[in-house]
Amino acid sequence: MPVLELAGKNITFNDEGFMEDHKQWDEAVAREIAAKVGIPELNERHFTVLNYMRKAYEENGTGPSIRALTKQSGIPTKELYELFPKGPAKKAARIAGIPKPQGCI
């Protein structure tokens, strides 16, 4: 499994590029992953999404659906797609350090 050095830590990823252990995550790691997937700067709104996703994952063992994400984090669908262009669910999960989302919605 690939190991990358990000923000001074050795982070293990699975073959699809999702973090193996979400506990290795911190904001600096998130910023470095984001830069690698085409989001050069993470702002407060990005972190609202990321923190909500991490919370949902810790509670349910899976990332939230886009519907739950927009309703409960207070970030509207349009903005979510602007914050994480080209595939918000997967991209946000990647940056949030949680596994690939399993739902279809």
């Binding site: 659906s65 886009i66 739950a68 927009t70 509207p76 669908t77 797609y81 739902g103 919605i105």
Partner: peptide, 18 residues
């Protein structure tokens, strides 16, 4: 239960998604 929205809400969501 599996978070599929009603048609009206779904249409809005899909449109907002671009």
């Amino acid at each position: 239960k599996i978070d599929i929205p009603p048609v009206g809400e779904f249409i809005e969501m899909i449109h907002d998604a671009g």
